[in-house]
Write a protein that binds this DNA or RNA. Structure first.
Lengths: 290, 290
DNA sequence: CACTTTGTGCAACAAATGTTTCATGGCCGA
DNA sequence: TCGGCCATGAAACATTTGTTGCACAAAGTG
């Protein structure tokens, strides 16, 4: 007999499918088509939905080489585990040498970061933007490398809400403003592993003050995500290089600003125009050449 | 208290976390950090791994408003259902209004930026990195929104070349250091349309001083790209939203730092380790919990 | 036709699951 | 110091789970 492709339990199932009795085929197809429910719901539940006998699932599992349904389900569960979010599956990671090694590193990095962006959940960003829109005042926090993200967000939000946005710790490392948070305000904390004490302290202060807490982090188990009303996740470690990637955080920050701006309607638009006019009057920018 | 985000059971959990008794906090954190296992494995299994009492899971679920662990798990399971996690291809692009308009805006933005990243030319980045590697001293310039990119680059390069990297204008808007540039040094200027006068002046000063000029810009016709030894292009206008995209510039900056670091070899590695050790000694970071 | 083999549903089974109860110990207010 | 309260772990509970034995029907074989 030809050795079946052991790669995934699902492919094993599909391969064995045609040589199975009719009823098991039905059940097998059902499992293959609904493998998420297969891993999460009970055998009897599935049987009810599929309109089959519960015993058929056990028999199916045994028919394709497992000791029982439990073992098949465990295999399916492991196969779907999201931890292996390494979509660069078989990429030859053989040590690159030669003059093109650097170029290859850059290309890899850019590709990896591009792949990470669409995986950012959009819904929480839209919700967080609404919270920002409703906030009377917005505080922004980020330390070390995340400071750049914080400052970008601060800059963009200030373009159309100049008086209501402030960077935490702008006047120095000890200026934490922790006591200044009020209910009805929003506090944004940006950070990834390893997390700085200061950012965690800001998050806790925001929570205690009853302000809306928005965490932009690399993991939902980040300490500043505890108690957060909105957690916006990005993948910091998904790309090669010695340093975590910040493109995801930047993309989140800019999306957040964009949606908040669009929620602001004509009022925000007007204020943005004012700001731009002021900058133009100060001749900050080089005038466009024809 | 801010309006709680009812969107995801996970966020409900995080919100309620700080007000829970200690043991339930532990269990809650465990669930938040291992939500995949929470949906797939049994309560007793989880309790064994988490080192907690099985009853704690039931109590946790009740504490945050569910009738029991089964209901919480069902909610987590539904939240993870992959059908809604694949907003890519078949997304309904018709409805531009209503409550989903914001989400659509975010998704579009992220996709557009993801598409832009692989279009960034890698070769010039690698060459510019070599220029940085050879430079005795590195100056970094960026104003307005580009300041965040400049600061990120400054931060990352300083991790392994602390004494040779400096942000132009760090001491204020008038501290332009224009007279300080020397041959053998490198000057990085970051900017996009509309271009600030200051950045153009820095670029010109660098050119006159005979320093290696690296321009990170959105167009090869940008004024600071004139006379530059290396021009690194990104697409600032490729994504929707009121503000030009900076993910490309960030990606370039991080790639530049990564390649420069790899060119630095063991010496750079050693200096990075020293910096990390210093930060750890200052207990800047939250220590990892087991 | 008799007899075996195989597929299938049903029901009973033991094991495992989530829940509840109870006893214990620590904490805070009187 | 006492008494009530809450948090917590262990054990007992009813329920649900996956499994298996059995009966019956259909198909295959002599």
């Amino acid at each position: 007999m030809a050795e079946p492709a052991k790669s995934s339990p699902l492919s094993e199932l599909r391969i064995a499918l045609p040589s199975l009795p009719m009823r098991l085929q039905e059940v097998g197809r059902f499992v293959a088509a609904n493998d998420y429910d297969a891993t999460t719901r009970s055998m009897r539940d599935l049987a009810a939905v599929a309109g089959a006998d519960p015993a058929a699932f056990t028999r199916l599992a045994k028919a394709i080489g497992y000791s029982g349904w439990d073992e098949l389900r465990a295999a399916l569960t492991e196969a779907r585990r999201p931890s292996q979010i390494a979509p660069f599956s078989g990429r030859a990671r053989s040590r690159r040498h030669g003059p093109n090694a650097d170029v290859a590193l850059v290309t890899d990095k850019l590709e990896a970061e591009a792949a990470g962006l669409p995986r950012i959940p959009a819904q929480p960003i839209a919700e967080a933007a609404r919270a920002l829109h409703d906030a009377k005042r917005i505080w922004i926090t980020g330390y070390r490398s995340c400071r750049s993200v914080a400052e970008l967000l601060n800059y963009e939000l200030r373009l159309f809400r100049p008086e209501q946005v402030q960077l935490v710790g702008a006047s120095g490392p000890d200026d934490l403003d922790l006591g200044a948070f009020r209910p009805g305000e929003a506090v944004i904390v940006i950070g990834f592993m390893p997390y700085t004490h200061a950012s965690v302290r800001v998050a806790q202060a925001a929570y205690r003050a009853g302000a809306a807490l928005i965490a932009i982090a690399d993991s939902s188990s980040a300490p500043m995500a505890e108690g957060a009303d909105h957690v916006l996740l990005f993948e910091a470690a998904s790309s090669p290089g010695f340093f975590p990637s910040l493109t995801g955080a930047i993309a989140i920050a800019q999306s957040l600003a964009a949606v908040t701006f669009s929620l602001g309607g004509t009022a925000a638009k007007k204020r943005l125009e004012n700001t731009e006019a002021r900058l133009a009057a100060a001749s900050t920018y080089v005038s466009e050449k024809g």
